[in-house]
Nucleic acid binder design. Structure first.
Length: 938
RNA sequence: GGCCGAGUGGCGAAAUGGCAGACGCACAGGAUUUAAAAUCCUGUGUCCCGUUAGGGACGUGCGGGUUCGAGUCCCGCCUCGGCUACCA
């Protein structure tokens, strides 16, 4: 009977914890706090995946450990429950997304509770709870009420936005529009993927090759009024504040690359006919007086470059197909070609356009612009390798020093002009590569070899050609090579790193960095350019044409004919939440407007203060709810504010945040952005939400491939718990390897850790007896010296492994402990007690059971963590390896703490060492006390 | 193409520049048993010499380097995985 049976032990303790509210967190921490957070799951219909418990177990172990060390722990769980699958399910079956979502949450909750995580379930929340998204909407209104003061680098209330006099003079509506343009939440026309076949708008990742992922229907891109969040305003702070965070350097870099800050210059190219140089001179003269205008007028093409030092090498320009100048710059002869090109480019999805493997495309507009540094006309092309959304949507192309421009120039036979002298090494290897390429393509060599009846000879002829050319090159002076490069840069390929200026007028000889700052200053002085900073990060497209998301708390004003006036109004904060309306069905209605357009009139057209409005019908993206849930967990039932200020101050920041790397960029960036806005507006005390971040590695199937239904290698946690128990599942997921590593599942491995728990059980329990009782070996005696040393070593190692989140080695240490004590016929009660406490964070159910059996009435969750005496962990004698010339030649046993002379003497006394050293001269002896002795001999 | 991570026994893995392979799986031998399962004990990197005791060589993806000493640090490659995709 008293075999280890998790199936009865585990539910017993789960019930105990629930009934006694063991893990209920106090409102405010007493003493040191720990806020440990898991990335909450999307409750999908397929239930918990074995990947979920990996991170959840890790945080749970840390929480249980720190609770025993006296910290007040906040460890909550919730559900990121808005999302597409529930809506698609609704379209298919007519079942309301809410009921489907709630069923899934119930199932997830059951599975999570089955694993014995010490969450405070009283704090559970779902982003779909009306009382939760009421505050999501409230935060949106804060964003709506905020503008970014670039000078102070801070978000401020819109009421504090200075109104320029000329705007103020034009009346209230102009002022309101001006304010609306400055808000962090604003509207803009953005392109959406509209799929007429499915009657819905699709996300970028749902579009493949211009067709819908489901059904393969054509997808067109069309502009739609969208809500945007001005995250770019915070780009600098989002990047700078990363630095002190306790995140892996990889994740920090990922975020920083995503933000993609670059410093360069904006330069205006005068747009005129090639012959109209006088116009250019006039323009230049006027610019010298007026300076560089904030916004470019129609007479110039403004470009952004990070390499203004290559201005003299600009041989053509490219504007994006969406650039407003396309039409104006296209000459009549080029009109049809340009129009056809633009038409095709605009209809392509972003993904297709950005497929870098494809060869470049483009078309000449027929017009030229004047290079401001040398007055030379350069042709303007349209090509989709220039993106409208970045910089100014126009570039100067410097093919000699940019890979993309080089490829394009070769393709369209545009001139290439070298303006940076490469290093000697680069020049020589580029020259050799060019010769090799030429030789490889030379058909004459094949013909020669064939004529001799030895086709195989071709390769050695080629090698010979390259070899002799290399020898000649090695002897030719570098000036000559440089001259050749300067004349024929196309042969050498693009040189894209820094160097020294050539062919650049008075700037010749300057190193790139110096040149860049000098010419930027010169351009600025002449009113032709200015320093500029750009980010890859774009503003966040925040609206979705979906039903199952948070409604926007925004109203559009209507006039007496029920037509929108273009003015918008925020729903009053006291009127939140704006709940989702009832819909009769969820089928798409065939127009690109959101499904909420089908809502009943009493929802869609509220009348407030005698004025009629139409509600915003877009909904928020899934990211919205997950942007701030960590704050709500601190105060989940507060009906007055989103989080109480005092509580926020006491609990924030999150001390440990664990989740998958797939959220390394977007979720974390969005959360950090909202957090900073809320901080600026005085609602939060911290500038960053997540102090320490750990990304768990993916768990693969037993065959080493990604788990998926299609591959048939999915492991279901329910099955594992049924067969081995939750403690075994937890333990195995931690024993597999380091938390961050990608690792394959192994059922044999689960058997292994289950075996360990069985052995630990038998260590303490009499498994032969009919009733549950202690093993006769467990006695109230003092531990022997050796037993005590094993105990203290184990406590020391498990403790430090836990502090470093090295769960796999901590478990190995406990296995060693069990192996040792299994051989002991007397196992001191006090030692067993402390072992059970060590085990408890990993395998809490069996630990509670053993703790009870060892004579304790109450849970061990708040028992003090065992301490160790470092002196007791030390062995009296240690074995020291002895090396000769770094090779292991013997070992000596010496008292621990022996000094250098003792060690050397002991080593020399070892017969084998003495034999090997005889007749040799020891030139050096290396002694690392406690570690090794190494004789260096001649 | 770029960035990040990883390559160690038959497998999962361990190792502040200091005895490579802890711990687990698997396998082998033994004890217990009428027998088996379960359990407990012992062994297990490869190769070579030796009947044994023991000894030796090799060994952390490949090639170099630094060092008394390198899985660990540096340089150059190869393979696999993840992320990313023309950001001027």
């Amino acid at each position: 009977m008293p075999r280890y049976t998790p199936a009865s032990i585990e539910p017993k303790w789960q019930q105990y914890w629930a009934q006694n509210q063991t893990f209920r967190t106090p409102e405010m921490p007493a003493g040191k706090k720990l806020y440990a957070l898991d990335m909450f799951p999307y409750p999908s219909g397929s239930g918990l995946h074995v990947g979920h418990p990996e991170g959840y177990t890790a945080t749970d172990i840390v929480c249980r450990f720190e609770r025993m060390r006296g910290r007040t722990v906040l460890h909550p769980m919730g559900f990121d429950a808005f999302g597409l699958p529930a809506e698609e399910h609704a379209i298919k079956t007519g079942e309301h997304p809410r009921s489907n979502t709630e069923n899934n949450i119930r199932e997830f909750t059951r599975q999570l509770k089955m694993l014995g995580f010490s969450y405070d379930w009283d704090r559970v929340l779902a982003t779909t709870d009306v009382e939760y998204f009421r505050w999501t909407q409230w935060i949106f209104l804060v964003l709506f009420d905020t503008w970014f003061d670039a000078e102070q680098q801070k978000g401020r209330p819109i009421s504090e936005l200075p109104i320029p006099a000329e705007v103020g003079a034009q009346g209230e509506n102009t002022v309101r529009k001006y304010q609306d343009e400055q808000r962090l939440a604003y509207q803009a026309d953005a392109l959406v993927n509209w799929c007429p076949g499915l009657g819905t708008v699709l996300a970028n990742e749902e579009v493949i090759d211009g067709k819908s992922e489901r059904g393969g229907h054509p997808v067109v891109r069309m502009p739609l009024r969208q809500w945007m969040l001005r995250i770019t305003a915070y780009a600098d702070r989002l990047e700078k504040d990363l630095e002190p965070l306790d995140w892996s350097s990889g994740i920090k870099k990922l975020q920083s690359d995503w933000i993609g800050r670059s410093v360069g210059a904006e330069v205006d190219f005068h747009v005129g006919q090639a012959s109209s140089l006088p116009g250019f001179e006039q323009w230049k003269a006027s610019r010298a007086k007026s300076g560089f205008p904030r916004k470019p007028a129609d007479d110039v093409l403004r470009i952004y470059t990070t390499r203004p030092d290559t201005l003299f090498g600009a041989t053509y320009m490219v504007i994006a197909p969406e650039h407003p100048f396309v039409q104006r710059l296209t000459t009549p002869e080029q009109k049809s070609a340009v129009e056809a090109y633009v038409q095709k480019a605009v209809s392509k999805s972003d993904r297709d356009r950005q497929d870098a493997t494809k060869t470049k495309t483009g078309v000449f507009t027929g017009s030229h612009a004047i290079n401001p540094v040398n007055g030379q006309p350069v042709p303007v092309w349209v090509a989709d390798y220039v993106l409208w959304g970045y910089g100014t949507g126009a570039i100067m192309a410097v093919p000699a020093h940019d890979e993309r421009d080089f490829e394009f120039a070769i393709l369209f036979k545009l001139p290439i002009r070298a303006v940076v002298a490469p290093t000697d090494h680069w020049l020589r290897s580029a020259a050799i590569a060019a010769i090799r390429k030429k030789a490889d393509l030379d058909k004459n060599i094949d013909a020669l070899a064939a004529s001799r009846g030895q086709p195989d000879l071709a390769q050695s002829i080629r090698d010979g050609v390259v070899k002799s050319a290399t020898e000649i090159l090695a002897q030719s002076p570098i000036q000559e090579l440089l001259k050749d490069y300067s004349q024929r840069p196309a042969e050498y390929g693009p040189f894209i790193v820094e160097g020294t200026a050539i062919n650049s007028g008075s700037y010749n000889g300057m190193p790139t960095a110096e040149f860049t700052s000098k010419i930027t200053a010169d351009l600025a002085a002449a009113g032709l350019g200015r320093e500029a900073v750009n980010y890859k990060l774009r503003d966040w497209l925040f609206s979705r044409q979906r039903f199952w998301g948070e409604p926007f708390p925004i109203l559009h004003e209507l006039d007496e004919h029920n037509q929108p006036t273009g003015m918008i109004k925020a729903v009053d904060m006291k009127d939140l939440p704006v709940d989702l309306p009832h819909l009769d069905d969820y089928k798409p209605h065939g127009r690109p407007e959101p499904p909420l357009g089908k809502a009943p009139a009493e929802w869609l057209y509220p009348v407030i203060g005698g004025k009629k409005y139409r509600r915003e019908t877009n909904t928020m993206p899934q990211w919205a709810g997950s942007c701030w849930y960590y704050l709500r967990f601190i105060d989940p039932r507060n009906g007055q504010v989103f989080v109480d200020k005092e509580k926020e101050k006491a609990w924030m920041p999150v001390d440990l945040y664990v989740g998958g790397a797939e959220h390394a960029v977007l979720h974390l960036l969005y959360s950090r952005f909202w957090h900073k806005v809320l901080f600026d507006r005085g609602y939060l005390s911290t500038i960053e939400p997540f102090q320490k971040l750990v990304n768990q590695g993916m768990i693969l199937g037993e065959n080493g491939e990604k788990m998926s239904k299609a591959r048939g290698n999915v492991i279901n946690p329910d099955d594992v718990v049924k067969e081995f128990g939750a403690d075994s599942l937890r333990l195995f997921e931690m024993f597999m390897g380091p938390l961050e590593a990608v690792k394959p599942w192994s059922t044999a491995g689960v058997v292994g850790v289950r075996g360990f728990l069985d052995r630990a059980w038998r260590l303490i329990v009499d498994d032969k007896s009919e009733v549950l009782m202690l093993n006769v070996s467990v006695q109230h005696t003092e531990p022997t010296e050796e037993q005590n040393r094993t105990l203290h070593k184990t406590i020391k190692q498990v403790t430090s492994d836990l502090e470093g989140m090295q769960f796999n080695t901590a478990i190995a240490r406990m296995m060693e402990f069990v192996n040792f004590f299994t051989k002991q016929s007397i196992r001191p009660h006090s030692v067993m007690e402390r072992f059970v406490l060590l085990l408890s964070p990993f395998a809490p159910h069996v630990a509670e059971e053993l703790w009870q059996l060892l004579g304790h009435a109450k849970t061990l969750a708040y028992e003090p963590w065992p301490t160790f005496d470092d002196a007791l962990t030390k062995d009296a004698e240690i074995e020291i390896p002895v090396q000769i010339l770094g090779k292991l030649r013997g070992k000596v046993v010496v008292p621990a703490g022996s000094d250098q002379p003792t060690l050397i003497a002991a080593a020399r006394a070892e017969p084998r060492i003495a034999e090997l050293l005889s007749g040799k001269e020891v030139v050096k002896t290396i002694v690392v006390p406690g570690k090794l002795v190494n004789f260096v001999v001649k």
